[in-house]
Design a protein around this nucleic acid. Sequence first.
DNA 1: CAGATTAGAATGTCCACACCGCGCG
DNA 2: TCCGCGCGGTGTGGACATTCTAATC
Length: 413
Amino acid sequence: MGQLCDYCGEQRSVVYCRSDDARLCLSCDQTVHSANALSRRHLRSLLCERCSSHAAIVRCLEEKASLCQDCDYHGHSGSISSSAHKKQRINSYSGCPSASEFSKNWPFVSEVTSMDGLSNGQGKGLFSIDENHASHCWQPDVSKITDFSTADGLDGLDSFVTWTGTSSMRMLDSMSCSVDQMSEFLDSTAPKLDCPRKAGLGLSDDNLFEDFDVADLDLTFENYGELFDESLGNQDQMFENVGFDSLFGIKDMSVTDINCLGDYLAEESSAGRVKMPQPASSSAVSADSIMSAKTEPISCYTSREAHSSLSLSFSGMTGESSGGDYHDCGVTSMHPMGESPRYPPGTDNSLPSAGRGSAVMRYKEKKKTRQFEKKIRYASRKARADTRKRVKGRFIKAGDTYDYDPLSQTKSC
DNA sequence: CAGATTAGAATGTCCACACCGCGCG
DNA sequence: TCCGCGCGGTGTGGACATTCTAATC
């Protein structure tokens, strides 16, 4: 028996909402996410049937179970037979799907639960997979998120791709990594990639980093509009049309590519040819940490758990490499599990050269004007803080009197 | 050359509370 | 629409703890 719905506490939870960090039954999912336009945008996915904790990203056809990253990995990496299981990717969705929409767009969703409480009452029995669409393509479709907020969501099974083996996309939590390290790392690795798919990564492309120095990259953004090409007019459109990957010129990065990159980096690192940034202790890689991340986009994958120390992250990184100038860019870089970067349909995913050029110009302009020295926003607060009593650097209550002797390290009232 | 140790630098955390800014009547 | 009130969150600096990096053995 799975976990009960976080909202009603009665029905079995079926859906995981990342934004709310909530596990909901389908009825409550519909109720909660029909409240307003913002909640309708929440990306949800099916709940892992094994751990009932995380969003499912794959459907194992053999086991007829929807699994999260961890459960998929642990369940399918142990033996050859299990790793050969056919699987299909499960995408996220938004909007407020009715039962019929659910079953139409996700016909594989059948045996998991009933749609008790759904308004139209059609949803008995939902989760199953049409194996006619099974193929052995390893490369999941990374382009689609079912959007039930629009009239034309997904066209049924187009959103599912089947492969075998583990999903193996170990997503990484943020870790400390200076821009210099990142730049050095990219500079040193880009030309050397010896991965069959490196062309797909774009890392072998000499032009990729032309006039694009990561160390110069200003990753401190005022808003998402600055991050993307403002010429697009509105940010929604930007998110619709531009993936974070495009920002960095890495396009068409499939899971295979990521695996190759991970493998390559592991080899290079172990051989000492690539110095990898040392992960901070807080950077323990876990799906949990990712799922709890408040902000989303930009993906960091490695190919295997063993490669978890090779993660790249842009969290807390800015374009300034000098010490003490780190600021959280406010845009951490994760594709939540099972969620794909969104690319403009039917196009390549590279930033248009004109847009890229303007982005570079805007960056350079901002770099000229930015100031990193501490700026006092409220002089009155500073004045107050300057006169406030402290003990060991900490503010103390105004009424308290401390006879603090720094040598004795004790206090008396 | 690899590993252990050490020193110094960098970064994060904590505290109290005035005040800013927002929502509400 | 404007105004006043109440409330919650923010920002402020110094000491200390923790983490990271580089140098040395």
